[in-house]
Amino acid sequence: MEANVSERSDRFVRAWVSDNVHNIPGLDDYQLHCEELAEKLKDAAQARGIMPDELAESIGDSYDFMINEYEQIRDPDLGFKDGRD
């Protein structure tokens, strides 16, 4: 049962990030934006029945997770790019 709970949370997070973490041209200071996204992720997870401790087990701290996601798609010359571009 524990693996199913974790897998459910992991699948939800991957889909949510794909739908919600995008290129924002000109976004240089993304910390506030990541704070907002972290809160939205937690709210969306809870609305799907994924409790905060289950989400934390999948991603750790939601703000740190969002910062990492943005840093992965950042282009030093162009700002942020969408991984699907």
Rank of each mutant, 00 (worst) to 15 (best):
G79W: 07
I59D: 00
H22S: 11
L55Y: 06
I59T: 06
A15G: 10
V21E: 04
L32M: 06
Q72F: 11
V17A: 02
K81Q: 10
D43H: 15
Q31R: 12
R11A: 09
N4I: 07
I59M: 02
V21A: 13
P25L: 07
L41E: 01
P25I: 04
H33G: 01
L78R: 15
Y63P: 05
I50A: 01
E39S: 10
Q31T: 14
L78K: 13
E2S: 13
L37W: 05
L78H: 14
N68S: 13
A47V: 03
E7S: 12
S58H: 05
Y63H: 09
R48I: 03
E54P: 00
N20S: 08
D82Q: 13
N4E: 10
K81M: 11
A44Q: 06
R74F: 03
S9Y: 01
I59Q: 08
D75M: 13
A44M: 05
E7D: 12
I73V: 14
P25M: 04
N68D: 12
L37P: 10
A44F: 09
I59N: 04
F65Y: 13
D61A: 07
R74G: 05
G60E: 02
R84M: 10
L55R: 01
R84I: 02
D28N: 15
R8F: 09
E71A: 14
E54C: 02
F65K: 09
P52Y: 02
E2V: 12
F12K: 00
I67N: 11
G79M: 01
S62W: 04
A56N: 06
P76F: 09
V5I: 14
V21D: 05
D61V: 01
L41C: 13
D29V: 01
I73G: 09
E71F: 12
D82V: 06
D43N: 12
W16N: 05
V13E: 02
F65D: 03
A3H: 11
F65V: 01
F65G: 06
N23E: 12
S62L: 00
F12I: 02
E39T: 12
R14E: 11
M51S: 10
A45M: 08
D19S: 12
G49I: 03
Q46R: 14
E35T: 08
L27T: 03
N20Q: 11
Q46P: 02
R14Q: 14
I50K: 04
F80M: 13
F65E: 01
E57Q: 10
I67S: 09
I67G: 01
S6W: 08
M51G: 10
A44G: 03
P76T: 04
L55A: 04
L32R: 14
K40A: 01
F80R: 13
Q72M: 10
D43K: 14
S62P: 13
L27P: 09
A38P: 06
F80S: 12
N4P: 05
S58M: 00
H22W: 07
E2N: 15
G60K: 00
D77Y: 14
E7V: 08
E7W: 09
R11W: 00
G79I: 05
E36S: 14
D29C: 04
Q31A: 13
H22Q: 03
L37H: 10
R74L: 03
E54I: 01
